[in-house]
Design a protein around this nucleic acid. Structure first.
Length: 589
DNA sequence: CCCCCCCC
């Protein structure tokens, strides 16, 4: 009796397993192959991942070919605890140099060639969002974006390429490839395929993009709601809102385990092919993102404006314009505090006060509020003065720490008292990348929002892991970071009445522990996202080594060779509709 | 990883 995969236990030894290798991939990290991976499937509903570390990678890659059948002899298993995993199996097969792999005849009864677990577009968020079990989807390739580079975390450029899939109900689904897989995606393979092109994307991580709700409308709706149904919790309002607006759109993000197959030979695919054979279809081109960049250098010079020029721009005519300005911050202005308590799920401001925090979108919160930056920078370019709004992730990068870290870990709880490390950012020449806020205020001028900050003295991005001067610790700093504190400052002649800090209070000592109203021992319940950038000392040590190994270097190295839309148009022209269905499947990675 | 997140 052959061993059923479902009965395999973790931390055990098995003499033999016969199965089909339905998926094979090599996981890469920063472009370097790290492990050989496969999914073994049997005919009793079982699937288990096999993994070989880098040392044995080539050996197994040359033996185990996707689609073929094998006997695996003398193997151990361990626990499947990976953050992302393709199978839900408790165990992983440890492929080591003494594991014997032999090709065998196809096992009977038949095991399907592909191992997929497709999810309906409509249920992706409820079933798969945030799940460590990766998700597979199938669809017609409706649109494709040229390879582009975007700034991520205000810190580095990364390759990105987007796809729009469509199912037979006309629903759309957005897929995003990042890094190496975005760069390596084979457009030429697409060019040779007849239309419609059906793609199976396998092994993707599901996230939710915020719905593009109209704030005006929601605000108005809520007021009306409160007037007519007073003294209720707003849960009814949330239900009402969800009825009218989708709560967000799923976005499938590529992982190291992601694969894709063009026109795979599976029953679901024929359904698609037949359905879309009725109408002429071409693959559309997704326009480049507004935030796509060619290089940091170009970005820094992009649409340079003086403050005078900015103040004379009509915000509503330049809603989508990104522009830059060289200036220095002379003061921070935060009448409502430099941080506010935000919803752990969406970072919107919580109302209701300390004992009754309520999110407009998510009602009562289940974990501690997440402190979130929001403050204005009073800036000058030597001629004029303006207010630039700084919040969220950009502020985190700029200050080198999350507001969460300052408030919970460093105990700078008073929102009206600013930590010294933040004040140390004043009076240094910077390049601000800016845009106008898409909100028509009835009272104020349109806010000018900071979307990125660059160090003017080095023309590099300001590294988010910079160690603040008050807590200097330089020995572990990476080669690629560009700490402002170590660079010569270029000061521009002041034109405001003051360029020193007098308008806000600075906490006297970073080590001081003011009376606190937030319990620090609840930290473990805090959401991971907010904790990511928490501690610059610890993370600087951890990351500096990785950076030296090529992380940032690779990002720099990619700056020169970016696909253009022109090239892309050219490529897609031949992708006209044809009747023939290709069964040739192709894969990457 | 990109979207938004604040304010009225």
């Amino acid at each position: 009796m052959a061993l059923p995969i479902k009965e395999i236990k973790k931390y055990n030894f098995y003499p033999s397993l016969r199965a089909r290798a339905c998926r094979v991939w090599i996981a890469k990290f920063n472009g370097q192959p790290r492990s050989f991976n496969c999914v073994f499937v049997d005919n009793q509903g079982g699937a288990i991942q096999g993994l070989a570390k880098a040392r044995d990678l080539q050996t197994f890659a040359s033996i185990i070919i996707e689609g073929n059948h094998y006997e695996i002899e003398r193997f151990y298993t361990y626990e499947n605890i990976a953050a992302n995993t393709v199978t839900a199996h408790d165990a992983v097969i440890d492929l080591k140099s003494d594991t014997k792999i032999t090709a065998i005849e196809p096992i009977q009864p038949y095991v399907p060639r592909y191992y997929f677990n497709f999810i309906d577009y409509a249920h992706i968020i409820t079933k798969s969002k945030g799940s460590r079990i990766l998700t597979d989807v199938l669809g017609r390739l409706k649109a494709l974006q040229p390879l582009e580079q975007v700034m991520v975390r205000g810190q580095m450029l990364e390759n990105k390429r987007e796809f729009m899939l469509e199912n037979t109900h006309g629903e759309e689904l957005r897929i995003t490839l990042w890094g190496d897989s975005a760069r390596d995606f084979d457009e030429f393979a697409l060019r040779n395929l007849p239309s419609p092109v059906i793609i199976a994307f396998a092994g993707f991580h599901v996230t939710e993009f915020k719905g593009n709700l109209n704030f005006h409308l929601i605000f108005f709706l809520k007021k009306i709601f409160q007037i007519f149904i007073a003294n209720r919790t707003n849960s009814s309002f949330i239900l009402l809102k969800k009825k009218f607006y989708s709560q967000g759109k799923p976005n499938l993000k590529g992982t190291a385990a992601s694969l894709w197959y063009f026109n795979p030979d599976i029953p679901e695919c024929s359904t698609y092919t037949q359905f879309f054979a009725q109408v002429p279809i071409e693959i559309q081109q997704i326009p480049s993102s507004p935030n796509a960049v060619l290089s940091i250098e170009k970005q820094i010079k992009e649409n340079r404006r003086t403050i005078r020029e900015i103040l004379c721009m009509n915000p509503y005519e330049h809603k989508h314009l990104r522009f830059t300005c060289q200036a220095l911050i002379v003061e921070f202005d935060f009448p409502n505090g430099w941080w506010y308590p935000s919803c752990p799920k969406c970072n919107k401001k919580l109302s209701g006060g300390e004992n009754n925090y309520t999110c407009m979108d998510h009602n009562a919160i289940t974990s501690l509020p997440v402190p979130w930056f929001r403050l204005e920078c009073i800036v000058t370019d030597g001629e004029d003065v303006a207010n630039f709004l700084l919040f969220g992730k950009i502020a985190e990068s700029f200050f080198g720490s999350s507001a969460h870290h300052y408030v919970y870990d460093k105990k700078f709880i008073d929102p009206l008292v600013i930590p010294p490390a933040m004040a140390a950012k004043l009076n240094k020449s910077m390049i601000f990348q800016l845009r106008f806020r898409d909100f028509r205020s009835t009272t104020n001028r349109c806010e000018i929002i900071i979307t990125n900050i660059f160090d003017d003295t080095t023309n590099k991005n300001i590294h988010p892991l910079e160690t603040p001067p008050t807590e200097a610790k330089s020995s572990t700093r990476s080669e690629t970071s560009t700490p402002l504190s170590s660079k010569k400052q270029v000061l521009i002649g002041p034109c405001t009445s003051q360029n020193t800090v007098t308008q806000f209070r600075i906490a006297p000592n970073s080590l001081e522990t003011p009376s606190q109203n937030i319990s620090p021992n609840k930290e473990t319940s805090l959401n991971y996202k907010a904790r990511r950038t928490l501690d610059f000392e610890a993370i600087a040590q951890q990351i500096s080594h990785e950076d030296e190994c090529g992380n940032a270097i690779e990002a720099q190295g990619n700056l020169g060779n970016i696909d253009t839309s022109d090239t892309f148009n050219h490529l897609l022209l031949p992708l006209k509709k044809q009747r023939k269905t290709s069964s040739s499947s192709s894969k990457e990675n």
